[in-house]
Nucleic acid binder design. Sequence first.
DNA 1: CAAAAAACATGATTTGCATCAGGAATGTAT
DNA 2: ATACATTCCTGATGCAAATCATGTTTTTTG
Lengths: 239, 239
Amino acid sequence: MQNSKVLSNIVERIKTSCTVSNISCSCFDHLTEEQKELVERNQVLVEYKKGEVIVKQGTFTSHILYICEGLVKVFYEEGDQSLILRIASPKSLIGLTSLPTNQNIFQYTASAYVNTTVKLIDINIIRKLILENGRFATAIIDVLSEVAMQKNGRFFCLNHRQAFGKLADIILCLAGNIFKTDKFELLLSRKELAELSGMSTESVIRTLKSFQDDGLIRMNGKTFEVIDPEGLMKICHLG
Amino acid sequence: MQNSKVLSNIVERIKTSCTVSNISCSCFDHLTEEQKELVERNQVLVEYKKGEVIVKQGTFTSHILYICEGLVKVFYEEGDQSLILRIASPKSLIGLTSLPTNQNIFQYTASAYVNTTVKLIDINIIRKLILENGRFATAIIDVLSEVAMQKNGRFFCLNHRQAFGKLADIILCLAGNIFKTDKFELLLSRKELAELSGMSTESVIRTLKSFQDDGLIRMNGKTFEVIDPEGLMKICHLG
DNA sequence: CAAAAAACATGATTTGCATCAGGAATGTAT
DNA sequence: ATACATTCCTGATGCAAATCATGTTTTTTG
């Protein structure tokens, strides 16, 4: 499909405002055999069913999560409001922000979007490896940096754009970064899209409808198809 | 003053939503004498006058900035819109997000708020030290983590709170974190407060006025005084 | 020191979007 | 198969905050 090519080009250009990251981590590649074994011995593999909470905001951080398979929603909650921080895909690490020893409480909740397999790795082992292995430390820093940069872009996007711009951005990112195709089955409900974009569910629905009416996308239940990525791109920048 | 005590207690409690960080870095303490010398040899000390641009978004990152004295505004710009990412105070590092070797372009602009002294340290030296010295690497990771966490809180704040809540938050943070007193000379203009809070300049002015009318703060030109931190706190949480 | 340029202020108007209310469609338990 | 719960959708209403317009004060600078 030609659109796919346009799509990836576009995503290339607007990477700054990407909402849903798929920053993967190759940090374990840099370990020695001995260190790999150490990790092996201090990790457990756990499967979570769709919807299950993996870690809960406010609990102690004893482990770092490494996603083997599935999708994880990482969100911040306060009262009855919540904000999705990111949607983590396989090979992502969750919990790195709790590495500082004085920061041993999870500042966000993570729950499984689909059935998900996660490795729980003792956080002290990770700390030890950072001390011992410079290349590992560098890889961790790379992940933290990239997440930080994406967050800046998203931050800007959610603050300065309005409904149309935000949603256009999200759709392009989902298509280009997560599903990597212009037609995909969206796992998120409208309500979750709302949490992701910081708008109301109703507004999400209306805006999506209007995109459809304008021939930018096609929707059928949960099936989404990006028809005019260039158009979405334009909206993204204008609005 | 009694307020100061209340203030610091409050800031303690709402650290999640803090807008203006003063995350300091003690990373250089962990270096060996030899490494310290290496840093010495590969750094330059530069003084910037109030308002001068230190690094410009889009340029190549060859150095990491370490603030010795002053205050630096770090902001993201796109078109005629801009968003202040943080206000960095002495002992802060700027440019860490450019550590990944494939990320060698500054994603934000930094400019001096007041006359500021900055150490420019060759980024490759920092990379080398991370590889060599685990404790240094750990310190860098700690900084990145803390910045990330603060950003989450701020993100939430700017998205879910409305004008009153945002500004109350900012005032408390400025008083508690940057100036550490309940009466201070604010360096930021109303316009900059607007950029910091993602609202319009006029709204900032109006909201501040209403805080004053309600006896929460007292203003006189650039002089601000927090009178009722508890009240601001309440507003901050309600919305 | 006067002129120009910012910054500050405030009222009137517009608008984007949340909220509310209610209905259709889809999914899920019994 | 029926009841119940979600999710999805639509229209009406209201409000918060941006924008516009315009004036005042403060600061900068030639």
